[in-house]
Simulated scan of single mutants.
Amino acid sequence: MVKLASARESRMYGPRLGRSRAEYMNAGLYLFSTIVLICGFAAEFSWEPRSGLVLMLIALGLIILVNIHDLLAHLAAIDYRFALMSFDPQLALVEFSVPLVQILGSLLFFLGILFLFIEAEKGYGFFKMERHALGMLIAGPVLWVVGSVHNSCQIYERADTHVQILQQSVHIPFLIGSVLFMVGAILNGREQSGVVRHGLHLLGKKWVWLGICGSLMFMIGGLTNVVKVFKMQQMNGIRLEKLRGGVQDRLIEDRDGQVPLIIDEQRRKMEVDEIKATAAAAVAGTKSRTPYKDVLLSRT
């Protein structure tokens, strides 16, 4: 469920105008999906609760698309070169793994809701599917929490303070919302363990209320994410964090048509080793040579 909020300067995929439109559409689509999710949980109190499940499925499908866009955006930023992740561990551990975890969590939650909807439509004929659905409703939010915590581990040492404040304003609501979903799913699973119920009756009121609260937190995070995207587009990438380990410079040189043979860090290391070797050779040479004054004294 969590949308990855990155403050990297490397998200330079495509033309600038198209990239800006894609970022705005991505942020707006996520905000819209959270509103649909709130409506889906609220519809569980109506006379037709199955309509709420349909709205949840639509919202989760949109959220999966948003996270897939985030994953592709981070890979496109490094020209899909997975080998470059070894030079910047945060790129692999956060900006690649977090969207992947969120996609898996949203997919599990989507399948759990889908199984319950099929069960309600078929007239309670697949009891094994109900048990799997309850397990998926727990596993999905657990992955959301893992992704939220992992997403909060982003470290931007050289980014602007204003950017980092915007980052935390997006992370904190997502983390709180993920925890609420996880707690609601666990309580609902324990509540249904000792009672024989089927279909929509497996979704208790605690799960619905905590789902509404969690969706509200996601909506707040979506609003702050829209503000963050707008501010970052206005900053023009000046106060954002660069990729570490020489990855950013290598990408810029490659995109300009220059293919460097050695990465900057390796080049600096070789220069230092060469200077040390030259100095050592000079010292050894001075020790081996006999001064001219000593030669004259020995002859006399």
Rank of each mutant, 00 (worst) to 15 (best):
D273I: 15
I35M: 04
E48Y: 12
Y80T: 04
G211I: 00
L180I: 01
E119G: 00
L261G: 12
F174T: 13
G285S: 11
L37F: 05
F41H: 00
L37E: 05
V183R: 08
A5H: 07
V295Q: 13
E191R: 13
D70K: 10
A83S: 13
T278F: 09
M270V: 08
M219G: 03
H201R: 10
F174D: 11
D79K: 06
M232A: 05
M136A: 08
L100N: 03
W207A: 09
V54G: 05
H201Q: 12
S20V: 11
V146I: 15
I64E: 00
S86C: 05
L71T: 01
G194S: 10
A27E: 03
R190N: 07
L297H: 08
L53H: 01
S86M: 09
H132K: 15
F117P: 00
F174Q: 15
L200M: 07
L65W: 12
L4C: 06
N151G: 15
D256I: 08
A159Q: 12
N236S: 13
C213W: 08
R158G: 10
V183F: 07
S106L: 01
A159C: 05
I165V: 11
Q90C: 04
G105V: 00
S298H: 09
N26W: 03
F181K: 01
Q258T: 12
G28V: 00
L75A: 10
K293D: 15
I262K: 11
E241P: 11
E274C: 12
V227P: 00
R255T: 06
G189M: 06
